[in-house]
């Protein structure tokens, strides 16, 4: 017997687009539109009941080179800062027309964490029926790998070059998912293309909710991360397994009842009731770092890796989890 594929075979993202070979963000957008169409089919009986507002960024630039488009869904290109605002407008118009469906707003980490943050906040606060998808490749890759506020500590970018007096990016990563959760919106989640079925499940859940939802997905960028083309998904998976990237869901801003997905990779998860309180990771973060050229200089600075480890622990502490991160020799 033939098993059914775990996701619809409908495609809203056509080949022939200009994304680099091995682009993780292209995978993320392809899966997201597939998952959203499944959600729309289950909720409204119409798989095509969605429209996309797309902020400037890598995926906008590669998918819509005039006169071509890679999209097979209603799609509008908007400026860097106002994807959320345009999505709000489309949603209001659909409501007036009595049209059922969900609006998908897409932004990169620059378009969401830096430039579009106030439009995003406004959209969430006005309670529009929009799903905002932030594809996080941790720098402005489209314009040539400049740092964003979502760039992690220690990463090389063209505007945070490591050297004698610099470790590369010297500030912690900003977690937009937690800022979105502070709006007490119905649904906030983080995902990674390293766990595609979890990502698809979260997009489907977010798509079916009435009201605003926010999903932040980690996408690998072989060009900007200086990583091998074929290792993209593996790196995204290692990010989960080493503790660098948490997978969580927060409903109605209730951070006390945060749902944390097990990271896998041999990590031990300890719970008190339904709450995850402690995770003992088995894989050291070095396994994640060593596959990427952007962290290469850190291996000459063990104190910088130690600082990154402390920051990862601090991030888990915000989520209410005590994270035990091993060192390679242990």
């Amino acid at each position: 017997a033939v098993r059914k594929p775990p996701i619809t075979t409908r495609e809203y993202w056509a080949p022939g687009h200009a994304a680099c070979a091995g682009c993780g963000c292209a995978t993320a957008l392809r899966l997201a539109t597939k998952a959203l169409s499944e959600a729309m089919e289950e909720k409204y009986g119409d798989p095509n009941a969605f429209a996309i507002a797309h902020a400037t960024g890598c995926m906008e630039v590669v998918s819509a080179v005039f006169p071509y488009t890679a999209w097979k869904a209603p799609w509008i290109h908007v400026a860097f800062e106002n994807a959320a605002a345009v999505a709000s407008g489309i949603e209001a118009a659909w409501k007036k027309l009595g049209r059922k469906g969900k609006i998908l707003a897409i932004g990169g980490d620059g378009g969401t964490a830096d430039i579009g943050l106030q439009a995003l906040s406004g959209m969430l606060e006005r309670w529009h029926n929009v799903l905002y998808l932030m594809y996080d490749n941790e720098a402005y890759m489209n314009t040539g790998i400049q740092r964003s506020s979502s760039t992690p500590y220690g990463a090389w970018t063209t505007t945070s070059p490591p050297g004698k007096y610099s470790v590369g990016e010297d500030k912690p990563k900003k977690w937009v998912a937690l800022i979105a959760a502070a709006h007490q919106i119905p649904y906030v989640a983080t995902a990674s293309i390293g766990n595609p079925l979890d990502f698809v499940r979260k997009i489907k859940k977010a798509g079916k909710i009435d009201g605003p939802a926010f999903v932040q997905v980690l996408c690998t960028c072989p060009t900007g991360w200086r990583s091998p083309l074929e290792k993209g998904v593996e790196i995204a998976r290692l990010a989960i397994e080493t503790g660098i990237w948490p997978l969580f869901e927060i409903e109605n801003g209730d951070i006390w009842n945060i749902k944390i997905q097990p990271p896998g990779g041999g990590a031990k998860v300890y719970k008190e009731g339904n709450r995850v309180v402690r995770i003992e990771f088995k894989k050291p973060i070095e396994e994640y770092l060593k596959l990427q050229g952007r962290f290469k200089h850190l291996f000459k600075r063990p104190e910088a890796i130690e600082e990154l480890r402390n920051q990862v622990k601090a991030m888990w502490k915000v989520l209410g989890v005590e994270a035990i991160l091993p060192r390679p020799e242990e």
Binding site: A14, P15, G16, H17, A18, Y68, T69, W71
Partner: peptide
């Protein structure tokens, strides 16, 4: 829609 298929990448 999907006209990027003209580019054989």
């Amino acid at each position: 829609p999907g006209s990027s298929v003209i580019n054989k990448t």
